[in-house]
Each structure stands twice: as C-alpha cells, then as structure tokens.
Design a protein around this nucleic acid. Structure first.
Lengths: 349, 349
DNA sequence: GATTAGCACTCTGCTCGCGGGAGTGCTAAT
DNA sequence: ATTAGCACTCCCGCGAGCAGAGTGCTAATC
C-alpha cells in the first residue's frame, strides 16, 4: 500500500462503500446513500468532506456537479489491490464447474469450448480461453497417413498428450514406403526435442538433407515442414459476447458495437490474453490500463492455466469497468485451476 | 403470379418504388417522395390512391396514420418473387470471392470459415455456413493411429476426400497388432458403404461380432464405433454478427440482443439452415415465415452448395426484413457456386 | 371515367420552459 | 473534528407548442 499516503482507514471504507454500491446499481452514489446504507457511524456531511478529498486525490470522479461520485480508474485499481476481499465462489458453482469440466471429453477443443461457456455463464460477462499452445511440449512422434493419391494426413504427437493433425496435398503420388521413409527420418531427427527448440534453422537443415536424399519429394516435404510450425495466432474460444449487452453502460449501440467488434477479432482477443500465459496468478486490467483502444470502458480479469505445472494457456473475462471484481477474480481463479487439473489428468493419462 | 389478382402493372411499379426506397432509407415512404424520386408519370394523388389499394390488399402497411407506407411481409414476398431483378454482383466482388476462396487452403474448416467471412463482409449482414456433412459420402478407409498407451487417433477417410479424426481413450493398452486387426476388420465390413447407409443396426451387428471375436476390447471398440457416428449438430461457422448492429431497426439494444443471442446458438442457426441443404437454389425466408421466434424482424437468404453435384452443405445471410434482397440473393448464389467449385476441385483432386 | 389539385386533418418529433429531486459545498454551531 | 442547515447547481421528466410530412376526401379537369 505504498504510494497511497492520502489513504487512511476511514477513506478506505468510504471508497469501498462507494465502489460496492456503484458496482451493484450503476448509479453515481451520494453521501446520503452511503450514510443510510452502510453504517459507518458518520454523517453525510463528514462523508461529503472525505469524498471531496478522495476526488481531489483522484480516486473518485463526478459525472457532473451535483451528481454522486463514481470510482475513477485509479479508484478501481486501489479497490482491487487493497480493498476487496476475493469473494468465495459458492459451493454450488464450484460443483458445477467441476462437474461440467470433468465430463469425459475426448477432444481438447471441446473442453476448451466448454470452459469458455461456463466462464461466460457464471460471470455473466464475455469470456475467452486461449487453447493450450503446444510449444511447451516435446516432439514425440510423427505419422503420415495416406488419404488418397495426393493427400497425406500428418499426425503430430506431442508430449504431454496433444495431437495435431494437418491435411497436406503433396502434389505427388507417394508410395507407402516413401512415406514411411520420410516419417522415419523426421522422427529420428526430431524425437524428444522441445517444440520451442525446433527453430526454422533446424528445419531448414533437415530440409536440405532430405532434398539431397530424394529431391523429388520437395513439395511434399515443404508441406510437412510447414505443418510443423505452430501458429501462435491460433483460434481463440470466445463465449457470452452478448452478455455485455445487458450492462447499462452499453445501452448505447455504438458503444456496444465497438466492444463486440473487438471481441469478434481473434487477433485482438489473442493480444489481450497473450502475456497472461506467463503471468503469476490472476491479473486485472482496468479500463485504459490496456493499450487496446476500445477497451477504455472495459476491464479484463485473466489467469494462466497449466499442464503439469507448466503454463500452456490463459483464460479471462471481459466486462465493463464497473465489474463485479471480487466475484470474477475468484471465478477466473477457480476455473483456471480446474482446467489445469482436468487437462493434466487428461494428457498424462 | 397467380393468386395476386389485385396486382396490375402500375401497382407493381409503385410497390417496387416503395420497397426499393424503404430498403435504402429505412424511412416510411410517402406518395410525394415516390412522385419526385421515381418518375412514374403520375401525380402524388394517384399514387396515394394506389397505395390505399395496396394497403387494403395487404402488401403495404402504415406505422401510424399520416406516416408513409412500408412493405408488409406479404409485400416483401411479392417483391422477392415477382418484382426484383437479381442484381449482378460487381466484377470486383466476383474476383474477390474467387480469389479469396481459391487461395490454397489445406483444411476444409479454414475454407468454410473464410467463406463465412467473405459472405459477411460483402453483404454487411450476418453470415453463416454449414460445413459439408459427410453423410453424403462413402466410407473409404479407417486408420487407427496409436498416440500413447491408452489413446488412439481414429482417422476416417471418406470419399470424396473428407477426413475426420477423433481422439479416443481406449481404457486398455492395445498393441499395434490388435489395432491393425480391428481396423482391418472394420474396413472389410464397411468399405464403400455410404455413410448414410451405415445405420446403428449394422454397427450393432458389427459390434456383436467383434465382441465375440475378442471380448476384452469392449471399451475400445465402443469408442471407435461411436466415433463413426456423424453428429449432425456439428459446428456452424458464423461471421459478421456485429454487422446487424449497424441496421437502424436494431438501434434498440433489447432487439439486437434477441437476434444476437439467436445467432450465438449453434443449434438455432443449424435449424435455420438445415433444410436448405436439400433445397433447389436460393431460398428466401421473410420475417415470421420462419417459425423460429425472434426471427420476426429478420429475413434469411440461403442456398445449398455441393460437391460433385451432390448437395453437402448450406450457407446463408441473415439481416433485417428490410434487406437488400436483390444484392444478397445474387451474392449468396455466387458464393455457393464458388464454394461448390473449390470444394469439388479440392476433394476429388 | 380516370387523374389531379387543393385543402383540412392527423400524427410525429423537436424544442423550450418549468418544477422536483438529488446532491454538493460552505458556514456556523456543537 | 464533526455535524446540522442552507443555498445553489444540475439532471431529468413532463407537457405545451410548433413545424413538417403525409394522408383522405372532394371537386375540378382532361
């Protein structure tokens, strides 16, 4: 709580009351309301004085003279960092999260999708999940399954248990033996390398070798090599975008549109979440703290999740700045934990 | 044009003018406007008389006394069926569609996604595409690729060229030989059967046989057999939902929310498009002609697409009832054609 | 007999002005 | 240091009034 010298205990309680109230009602809150609703044992006049101070030091703002106060960005920040108690997620909700993530899923993408759905439903805001990025894993095996004359299915097995498949047009007819050859060669060169370590250098090298070895495979090889490259801008799973239309701050369609457009762009959402993957624990970004334009009226709560203790992805919730932080933080935390568990169990068998 | 006895040529031209104008301006249109903007060679007074007739026979309605007229659902229907000329898609747009769909795509899902994107961008409404359903195809081959001790990747090759992969937890350790055995057996029984023909009856039969043959494979088999079943409620690719917020009829957030919620539900969108797959050519559904509640303010233009002349999927555009039908119909038509072409070339090599 | 000009009428949307209500800041009393 | 009291400010909702657009009807015109 360094660098907040103006904050004594009473100011803290008043800021808390104002923020809590505003989060619930979306209406600027006045001294009278506070005195009535939260019994702090002081009169409206005193509260008014404190409020004036809090406004002066930037924690509150006033939409117009003679309206109540609302928390400023700095106010929310202080609230999140030093005031709010992370609210327990109800046992009911906990069970639901557990149960719905636990259902036997055979495909990771379904699990991720489900996670986004739960998060959106329980938070009543928009939710998104960055699927596990396989760069954290280790190359285990590659299989080439012929599909028809000119098409091969590349199956990439990664440890822990991810599987990536790519359909590749070879442009040549390849015999079963030739495929086995290529697969064998690639396997011998790549086995047990971490995906992050398989740089373009090594790939180029391998390519040169194979070219020499059998130059007519060029096209096929090209395709296979390309399919090894992980695309970081992979899909993002979003859910509950429409929820934000329930928030009074987005009653104006043009504002809602700005945010919904942002959420519709995978790259934008990706860039919002990208550095959460390597964050410690839950991260809260309030309003314009995010550099992304169009986020100024929004806040984001996000957290990384892991497999076997290694962070592999992230998930988060986006809502108005006036967000129910204490609940959402707890929710994001617990969903991230559960997803980590389920994934870990699922992938390492 | 049977069953429209009240319609003479002049009424048709007036209905056309009103509909065109209303589609462009979203404002009820009055007799004066028509006389000025479309030179039909008749005076406002005459137009007023005709408009009264058109309202009487249900083609027009009046939001309130002394406002202009707007087309009713019946009016739009007549407009779409008998009046509008399908507007040529500009050469520029045609080239763009061709080019963007033509780019080497290796994965069908990417192609479908791209199709939805183009459709949304060019129509400026919401677009969706039902991916090709494999039931139309023929079982060609099944491969079982071991991923780790208890997991198998089932690769299902369908003719024409679709590939479906499913990750399956077997619950048992299976040797390479056992897998080869199962695959061989299933292949011998299923090869060249149409997927639609592989009913649960045949599957049960096969299962009994395999059970008998090697009963301890039960769990593994169960999973494999299940993965053969095609899920009709497969994913739907939607794009441009936010576009509808640009339409003045959805300036009211609650209306917008209703439609966006509908679009967010895959099943709902699926049910909208389901019977288009087997439709002839382009289909236009206006307002409450669709039974889906919440669609009353919307219209949908959709068309099937095919591979090798066999309909396999559908795509469509959803917008307000006041939709630019002539353009959208042309657009949907041409995108469907292009997708059919590209898919056919892509799948049959 | 169909078309049109003219006119009275209706309905919306906008602006304006006017309280009522909520909230503040200041001053003086406790 | 706290609080009661009071004057002041600003928003919001409401109704009146007015301009504009459009209609339907009637009577004149081609």
């Amino acid at each position: 709580m360094a660098s907040h010298p103006q904050m004594d205990d009473r100011k803290k309680r008043i800021l808390q009351a104002i923020t809590d109230d505003y989060i619930n009602t979306a209406e600027p809150v006045g001294s009278r309301t506070i005195a009535r609703r939260y019994n702090l044992g002081i009169s409206p006049a005193t509260i008014r004085n404190e409020m004036a101070d809090l406004e002066e030091s930037g924690y509150l703002e006033q939409p117009h003279t003679s309206a109540g106060r609302i928390p400023s960005q700095k106010g929310y920040r202080f609230y999140v960092d030093f005031i709010m108690k992370v609210e327990g997620v109800s046992a009911e909700e906990k069970r639901r999260i557990r149960r719905e993530l636990d259902e036997r899923r055979r495909e990771i993408s379904l699990l991720i999708e489900e996670t986004a759905r739960i998060l959106a439903q329980l938070s009543r805001y928009a939710a998104f999940v960055l699927p596990p990025v396989s760069r954290a894993g280790v190359f285990k095996r590659l299989e080439l399954v012929p599909v028809d004359d000119q098409t091969v299915l590349v199956v990439l097995v990664i440890d822990p248990g991810f599987v990536k498949t790519h359909l590749v047009a070879t442009g040549h007819r390849l015999t079963q033996r030739q495929l086995a050859h290529i697969a064998g060669f690639l396997n011998s060169r790549l086995r047990n390398l971490s995906l992050a370590g398989i740089g373009s250098g090594l790939l180029r090298e391998i390519r040169a070798e194979l070219d020499e070895y059998n130059s007519f495979l060029d096209a096929a090889l090209d395709a296979i090599v390309r399919s090894l490259e992980t695309r970081p801008e992979d899909q993002v799973y979003t859910n509950g975008q429409v929820n934000i239309l329930e928030q009074p701050e987005f009653r104006d369609v043009t504002k809602a549109k700005a945010v919904l457009e942002l959420l519709a762009e995978d790259e934008a959402v990706y860039s919002l979440l990208a550095d959460t993957v390597n964050a410690q624990n839950v991260k809260v970004v309030i309003g314009q703290e995010s550099a992304v334009p169009g986020m100024s009226a929004c806040s984001m709560v996000s957290a990384p999740y892991e497999v076997c203790g290694v962070p592999v992805g992230a998930l988060g919730v986006l809502g108005p700045t006036r967000m129910h932080y204490s609940h959402v933080v707890a929710l994001v935390e617990i969903v991230a934990e559960n997803l980590s568990d389920v994934l870990t169990r699922m992938l390492v068998v």
